[in-house]
Amino acid sequence: MSGAPVTVRVQRDDFDLAAEVRALSASRHDIGAVVTFSGLCRDEAGTLSALELEHYPGMAEAEIARICRQAIDRFGLQAATAIHRYGKILPGENIVLVVTASPHRQAAFDGANFIMDFLKTSAPFWKKEHATDGSAGGWVSAKDADDGARDRWSKS
């Protein structure tokens, strides 16, 4: 098992992409590639006023850390950071950040992709929509496409 550093945070506040990339690569000279993925809240063509994100404290952090460790071992990443927000999030705001580092680009791309696919299907977070017309918000349904995206990693 690799001792590559994993940083996981579940927080209400926003995050800063540049600061997280700096923190991950600070005082190292062996990293050749850094990939960042950030997921934002869409307004769904003006119908959505906010998302409310609920999570399972403790398990959320543990699951994300477990997924990051798997990605490090599978792709030989040099470091991984994952930050997920909870609470009320407005259209245009950040929801999730994944940063991966590796000697060459492919591992960092694949690692970030892998982390997101598993995060979506096994990290305990749930989104509730608030509508701009004031109607009662509904819980977002899990998508079969997300299960498919996760399962493709077990085919290769």
Binding site: K120, F125, W126
Partner: peptide, 10 residues
């Protein structure tokens, strides 16, 4: 023991 719906984070 926790019970919850399918997850929709990310």
């Amino acid at each position: 023991i926790a019970l919850f719906p399918p997850m929709t984070g990310g």
